[in-house]
Computed example of a mutant assay.
Amino acid sequence: MRAEIQVKLLENLLDEITKRYDSFIKEQNEKIEDTLEKATKDPLTHLYNREFLSEYAEKVLKENRRKGESIALIFLDLDNFKPVNDNYGHEEGDKVLKNVAEMLKNSFRDQDIVVRYGGDEFIVFAQLNRVQVYELNEVLKSLQNRIEDNFQKYGISISYGISIYPLEANNLEVLIYIADKKMYEQKKRKKLDEN
């Protein structure tokens, strides 16, 4: 009888240790996930940040050199965003940025990387086949129209530029430079059309 009690006590003790261990492991995993989230994501929009883009792009570009697939880097910048912060406050500006981030995520595929590059600038890094390169402008025009419709109150639009790997560049810095330059050219054309 005494041995049965000791076995039962040991079983209860083992059960308690297992529960505590499971709880500890769960807590550690949550801390790791939280740390990873903070290291790779923008805290406001929950899009990837530029540090993540640099690391991810380096790996993908290296891989794609072997495969020979195209990658589009899309640089997007909100037009007329500064007056939102100036006239309505930063809280309202933050709401706009969060909504734009959600629209961007919904406009692209799950495997495409959407990044808040800084302020009101965004980058989309998308692996494409030849057909999708041509469809990309349609996706971006549709996104531009939705942003203009949703933020008509503020007069916000979006300008964008696209660079294609390996056609135009073979590293991230040059892809960003080319797409950024094209985006500013689009922004200039839009201002000329307004006048």
Rank of each mutant, 00 (worst) to 15 (best):
E51A: 14
K190A: 13
I162T: 04
N12W: 08
Y88N: 02
R20T: 11
T45M: 15
N64F: 00
F52D: 13
E63D: 15
E63I: 13
Y117H: 08
S157K: 11
Y160D: 05
L10R: 02
R116H: 06
A101K: 01
L9T: 12
R146Q: 12
K59Q: 14
Y117N: 02
Q111E: 08
V114G: 00
R109P: 07
D110Q: 10
V124S: 03
D79V: 04
V60K: 09
L78V: 00
G93L: 03
I176A: 08
N12V: 12
N64R: 00
K98R: 15
S107D: 03
E51C: 13
G93N: 03
T40C: 01
V174M: 08
K62Y: 15
V131N: 09
I158L: 04
L172I: 07
P83Y: 08
D112S: 05
D79K: 11
E92K: 06
I123N: 02
K67H: 12
Q144G: 12
R20S: 08
E30H: 11
N99V: 13
R20L: 10
K82P: 00
Q132E: 14
Y165S: 07
E148R: 13
R50Y: 10
D112E: 03
Y56R: 08
N29E: 09
K8Y: 11
I32H: 02
E138L: 14
L9N: 15
L172N: 02
L167W: 03
K41W: 00
R189K: 15
D180S: 10
I156G: 15
S23D: 12
K182V: 13
L128F: 04
K59T: 07
